[in-house]
């Protein structure tokens, strides 16, 4: 990541009659970073992206890309932008290769150069075996990969990915995420919107969390996680538990919360060392019949829960 700003959004507002879909948000995206927009469905992520891309007329604010004001006619800016939408945008009548060729052809006229770009895109998303397939012959995961190839074949410097992994199998999801990291490593700047916190944690360098059109937190993964009250969560599978014994866990050092549901005990700690060892000692000393014990660091969902009182997927 460099300190060169690729996108500057200042005081962006988008209103639909009485609804404020985007409420005065500002942020910057830097060159060669993967920038995550995290938020639940309907939080305003896609509206923000559509406003940045001039697909939507926003109510107020300023947007500049590559240091220039973004407008619907800014074709010099658009030349270096690639977009992968949430819904697959391909022609059913064209093959995989022909689809990529068409969308790449909207940017690159030279046939030879285009051919190389198409091959690179196909290789990046690993759909080389399906070049002559029609979209309806592809699985959901392969379709998503084709969708990505269509958006990045012209080798854009700035790529917007709007929930590109919705309804994708784990294998395709990993392939897509690895592809995105490779694009960043090759020099592209990525704006990634999703409501899957695991993906954001896995690939994003910086993140903003949006809820109800407002930015409620921003920063790196580590910075954001500090916003959560807990530092460690220990989960234990216990066959039986009564109320009195459950209260006993609250007496352990740095415990902030204890819950038991469906043979699963979850104990949250606000800090402290050797929490897991202390926990096991407590289990043994009280003759608990337990099986698996595992520890987790706080997630962005915990941050979101802390800030909004609800889960990301609510």
């Amino acid at each position: 990541m460099s300190d060169k700003k690729v996108i500057e959004v200042k005081n962006l507002v988008k209103e639909y009659k009485e609804l404020r879909a985007v409420d005065d948000i500002s942020f910057d995206v830097y060159e060669k970073e993967i920038f995550g927009l995290l938020g639940p469905n309907g939080s305003g992520k896609s509206t923000t992206i559509n406003s940045i891309l001039s697909l939507l007329k926003y109510s107020s604010g300023n947007i500049s890309i590559f240091g220039k004001e973004m407008t619907p006619d800014a074709y010099d800016i658009k030349r270096d932008i690639g977009v992968i939408f949430q819904d697959v945008a391909v022609f059913q009548e064209l093959t995989v290769y022909e689809n990529i060729d068409y969308f790449c052809g909207l940017y690159i006229r030279d046939k030879k150069q285009r051919k190389q770009c198409i091959e690179d895109a196909i290789e990046l998303v690993s759909i080389g075996d399906y070049k002559k397939f029609y979209p309806k012959q592809l699985s959901g995961g392969l379709l998503r990969r084709l969708n990505i190839a269509c958006g990045i074949a012209h080798k854009p410097k700035l790529i917007f990915l709007d929930e590109p992994t919705v309804a994708v199998d784990p294998q395709s999801r990993n392939s897509i995420l690895e592809g995105i990291k490779k694009l960043r490593d090759d020099g592209a700047t990525i704006v990634y919107t999703t409501h899957y916190m695991e993906e954001v944690e896995q690939i994003c360098d910086r993140i903003i969390i949006i809820d109800k059109g407002k930015i409620i937190a921003s920063g790196t993964r580590e910075n954001l996680k500090k916003l959560a009250k807990i530092e460690e969560r220990i989960t234990v599978e216990i066959k039986k538990m009564d109320k009195e014994k459950l209260e006993g866990f609250k007496k352990l050092e740095k415990v902030t919360d204890v819950s038991y549901e469906g043979h699963t005990l979850v104990v949250s700690f606000s800090g402290g060392k050797n929490n897991i060892a202390n926990m096991i000692d407590h289990l043994r000393n009280n003759n608990f019949s337990y099986r698996r014990v595992y520890s987790e660091r706080p997630t962005l969902n915990d941050v979101f829960l802390e800030l909004t009182g609800k889960e990301l997927r609510d």
Partner: peptide, 18 residues
């Protein structure tokens, strides 16, 4: 209808072709 499907049209609008 193929060319005017919402997603395809969006992708066309955002391209460098006017």
């Amino acid at each position: 209808t193929s060319f005017s499907e919402t997603t395809i049209r969006k992708r066309t609008i955002i391209s460098s072709m006017s």
